[in-house]
């Protein structure tokens, strides 16, 4: 069987004031339909760049992306994106936010009533039916992210792209959303690429974990198959040997093989800063 999505020799060079910066080099990846793939790596290594190239929001400078036998050249609803900070239109209610997407994608194929039902159905899927008519300002961060997911799912994408979707949420809310996402993935069989920097999240949700090396010229370092049967339960998994081994391997990759040394601020400058603030 041929892969649904294929990245071949994808490279990305940015023009910066200090010259060309090669963010990505030779990224090769094949993803099958229905797979849940996580991208993990240190911050700044190029995960978002990969995702944006798949989304069509960025054009790769080398290589290319093929989705379902067609080259990706521009953004489109068949590659729906869930952004890190929800990106809901603040002047529309949850319902209207999802409706905007549904109308745009299905205006030719669905009647008015069908559109309304489809919007409501997707909001129910993410457990947001109770706050359908609230605006983003009136709901919590986790709820906004749920609406963002509903909006993306409602487009019936071939691939769902998520850029650190739960990064800004507290641990408890994040756990709830992870469970919802697993439930939805099991129910719909959507193909998902998710960026995360949370090792547990990656192992819990993914079929495969794609680990990226540090930039510049970042590429795929290792790919790990997570052979843990579904449905997965976060409590039972805590001491499942496969789960623990996978977790170990990702941690090893991140903190031994790709150890990232963040320069600490110098003592003097910290002190000077404090003095300046006091003055």
């Amino acid at each position: 069987m041929k892969a649904l999505l294929e990245l071949s020799n994808v490279g990305m060079k940015f023009d910066t004031p200090k010259g060309t910066f090669e963010a990505l080099k030779d990224v090769n990846l094949k993803i099958d339909a229905g797979e849940f793939v996580s991208l993990i790596g240190h911050s700044g290594c190029g995960k978002s760049t990969v995702l944006n190239i798949v989304a069509g929001l960025l054009q790769a400078t080398d290589g290319g992306v093929i989705l379902d036998k067609q080259e990706v050249t521009e953004p489109g609803p068949e590659r729906a994106v869930v952004f890190q900070n929800h990106s809901l239109l603040p002047w529309l209610t949850s319902f209207e936010n999802v409706e905007l997407a549904v109308k745009q994608v299905f205006k030719k194929t669905k009647s008015k009533a069908e559109i309304r039902d489809w919007v409501e159905h997707n909001l129910e899927l993410v457990h947001m039916a109770h706050a359908m008519h609230k605006k983003p300002d009136e709901i919590s961060g986790g709820m906004k992210q749920r609406v963002g997911i509903a909006r993306a799912l409602a487009m019936q994408p071939q691939v769902l792209l998520m850029d650190e979707p739960f990064g800004a949420l507290d641990a408890l809310t994040r756990a709830h959303l992870q469970d919802s996402l697993m439930e939805i993935h099991a129910q719909l069989g959507t193909t998902v690429i998710m960026i995360t920097h949370d090792v547990d999240e990656a192992v819990l949700l993914s079929d495969r974990i794609v680990m990226m090396t540090n930039g510049p010229s970042a590429t795929i370092g290792e790919i790990l198959d997570v052979n843990v049967p579904r449905p997965r339960d976060r409590l039972a998994l805590a001491d499942d040997p496969t789960f623990v081994r996978c977790r170990q391997q990702v941690l090893q990759f991140l903190y031994e093989k790709q150890r990232k040394v963040e320069p600490l601020p110098k003592r003097e400058s910290v002190k000077a800063e404090a003095d300046r603030k006091r003055a």
Partner: peptide
């Protein structure tokens, strides 16, 4: 972000 939403939706 909103501009990206608009692009993904092909408005």
């Amino acid at each position: 972000d909103l501009v990206n939403v608009s692009k993904v939706l092909r408005l």
